[in-house]
Design a protein around this nucleic acid. Structure first.
Lengths: 193, 193
DNA sequence: GTCTATAGGGGGATAGAC
DNA sequence: GTCTATCCCCCTATAGAC
């Protein structure tokens, strides 16, 4: 009773906000949209949250947790370092929708510290997992040292995030796939065996 | 007189719109903002343009023309292919502001064909220049063939566009610079001499 | 905790004088 | 071609009944 359980209304608001943040971004997401989509009445939003921003931050936190967990599954320790990176690169994606977190990078809401921190948290997590895998592979001798682990991690992540931009700009998944093929070729070049 | 000359008012509106599109994006740019910044009165905007979208498209076209010209200067033919790519990668950038065109990739206005086409035009132009340089270098024997020209062009562009996302997310230019260092290392790996 | 009703403000656009 | 005045709608938030 005491704070452990949260009402279904709150959760439905967060679910709707998560969908809308991905589909339209923060500025474009109006409280009215959230209410219509969640089927919840006007005042309830302001019972559970201080306002639109607080709701978005709650939704963002949930998205970050989900995406970090999905990333950790891709980077499971039992795989070889090279396989982890290959799986991340070749992962299934809804390319035309854009990265759930990265697509928010240009919203004015990024000026809000907690908002920006959530996006940075996710991207930093992926980048660290990538760098970690490269370092491990180099130490094990299965990846060569042509690229610095940190630089390689940033490179691979940037290709993905930039690939989303290309796919959306041309409205064509193939534009991301070409960039991805370049990254995969780089990974092959790094592979020793 | 007959259509050759455009009033100063129109140009000032476009200038203000160009600034605002870069600073805040399209959805966030209100006609009121444009008017305040340009110092022009209410009705004049609708004398020169059908509405906000038409103004933004005119501003976009101007931005694309400017940026393509700047890109063509970077890819001047008298440079070696490798130098052209290196100059593009190492180009001075306002990393925290984001790519003037690429930052619009996630706006809902991208659903408007002319809007999306402008962004795609710029990005396609850069990608072609990059691929062209790689192909030329390979034919001249100064770049090896570890990467396909098309894939390399997409890779380099995606790293830049993704680098902007990383820099903005962490609010730290260094995050883009690390990814860039990775791309530069890849370019070095491709260099024969 | 959820609802309906409502309010203030600004976004996007138009009217019409000068 | 430029200006001021004005309009309608929706965005964000609050009030208060149930």
């Amino acid at each position: 009773m005491s704070g452990a359980r949260r009402g279904a209304g709150r959760d439905r608001l967060i679910s709707a906000a998560k969908e809308l943040l991905w589909e339209t971004g923060y500025e474009q997401m109006s409280p009215g949209d959230v209410l219509r989509r969640s089927g919840i009445g006007q005042g309830s939003l302001y019972h559970h949250f201080e306002g639109k921003l607080a709701l978005a931050l709650a939704a963002l936190d949930a998205m970050v947790a989900e995406e970090k967990a999905a990333i950790d599954a891709v980077f499971a320790a039992e795989k070889s370092p090279r396989q982890r990176i290959a799986d991340y690169l070749g992962r299934e994606r809804q390319m035309l929708r854009g990265c759930r977190l990265g697509r928010l990078a240009n919203e004015t809401a990024m000026e809000t510290p907690e908002f920006r921190a959530a996006v940075a948290d996710y991207l930093g997590h992926v980048e660290r997992r990538l760098a970690e895998a490269v370092r491990e592979g180099q130490e094990a001798g299965t990846l060569n040292r042509t690229l610095d682990p940190t630089e390689a991690g940033a490179l691979f992540l940037a290709v993905i995030e930039g690939g989303y931009v290309l796919a959306r700009a041309h409205w064509d998944e193939a534009r991301m796939l070409v960039a991805l093929a370049g990254a995969q070729a780089v990974l092959r070049q790094m592979s020793v065996t």
